[in-house]
């Protein structure tokens, strides 16, 4: 399959800070790839390299067989702007016209707006739109040039459930017609709904690159906390630390952990189990990674 976007050992530094550390990644035609990771993990930096906003400090980044810095190459991609930056004084239709003017094979304005449920808003000024409407417009702009590949940064943040579904349907339709998508998200649910493949990024590195199911299992981490004097040997433990006499354990299988705990006969009290946040799960994976090194 054709590779549309490729990073080979791409490193990006901002002064002393290494935002991206020797990342290698290939995105092939027709894929929907979810880029998952906590804030500051390097997701935005990776996307900025692919869309030509920044250059790698070392390594190689390739887009549609060329350089992302070449405007002609960028005719084949679409990007979402941050909705907070849309020029307030302009009308929806005018923004679409401006963006479309850059592409030889632009989508029709009416059709594009209809695809994202914005058909009644063409004459409205951006300043008068709701946050959700701005978000949908921002996503629609990525599709204005009938691109081969789109980069969607947090496409449904701040949308209500119905608008989110509508937007997902739009992305799926684009994919079914052969489009390629790289999307970032904080939400596992969003990536699960759209992507087949997930790339987990943390501390500037690719921590996992696998199917949605495999990564879901990997981050299906729970946090078990309890008060005890000591702990027995426990299975599936990712990390353990103690704070004011209370143990905090991260595990991928809380059921088995509790069974073993009870079976060991060690006295304990105040047992709590809750799903870990995605953030905690990522940190756990990151720590496991560094422990292996």
């Amino acid at each position: 399959m054709t590779v549309l976007a490729r990073a080979v050992e791409a490193t990006r530094r901002y002064g002393e800070v290494v935002a991206l550390d020797r990342v290698s990644l290939e995105i092939r035609a027709g894929e929907i790839v979810g880029l998952l990771g906590p804030n500051g993990a390097g997701k935005s930096t990776l996307i900025n390299l692919f869309v030509g906003l920044r250059r790698p400090s070392s390594g190689l980044v390739e887009l549609l067989g060329g350089s992302p810095a070449d405007p002609l190459v960028r005719r084949g991609i679409g990007v979402t702007p941050q909705e907070t930056g849309l020029p307030e004084a302009l009308r929806v239709g005018e923004i679409v016209d401006l963006v479309s003017a850059h592409f030889p094979d632009a989508a029709g304005k009416a059709e594009l707006l209809a695809r994202f449920g914005l058909e009644d808003l063409a004459k409205r000024q951006i300043g008068g739109l709701s946050g959700g409407q701005k978000r949908r417009l921002a996503v629609a702009l990525a599709f204005a040039g009938n691109p081969r590949m789109v980069f969607l940064d947090e496409p449904t943040t701040g949308l209500d459930v119905e608008a989110r579904r509508a937007l997902w349907d739009g992305v799926k339709a684009y994919h079914e017609s052969g489009g390629t998508v790289l999307l970032t998200s904080h939400y596992l649910e969003e990536i699960e709904a759209l992507a087949e493949r997930v790339v987990v990024v943390g501390r500037g590195r690719v921590l996992a690159d696998d199917t949605v199911r495999a990564v879901r299992d990997m981050v299906g981490v729970r946090r078990v906390s309890l008060v005890a004097d000591r702990l027995p040997e426990l299975p599936g433990l990712i990390s353990s630390d103690r704070e004011d006499g209370r143990f905090h354990l991260l595990t991928s299988d809380s059921d088995e952990l509790v069974v073993e705990l009870v079976r060991s006969g060690v006295p304990f009290s105040g047992l709590e189990i809750r799903p870990s946040s995605l953030e905690e799960a990522f940190l756990a994976i990151t720590e496991k990674e560094s422990a292996h090194v």
């Binding site: 030509g52 405007p71 960028r74 702007p81 020029p87 040039g145």
Partner: peptide, 14 residues
């Protein structure tokens, strides 16, 4: 200073 500026730079134009 606007986030619109980097977006415009991703469009295919110098």
């Amino acid at each position: 200073e606007q986030p619109w500026d980097p977006y415009l730079r991703t469009l295919p134009a110098g």
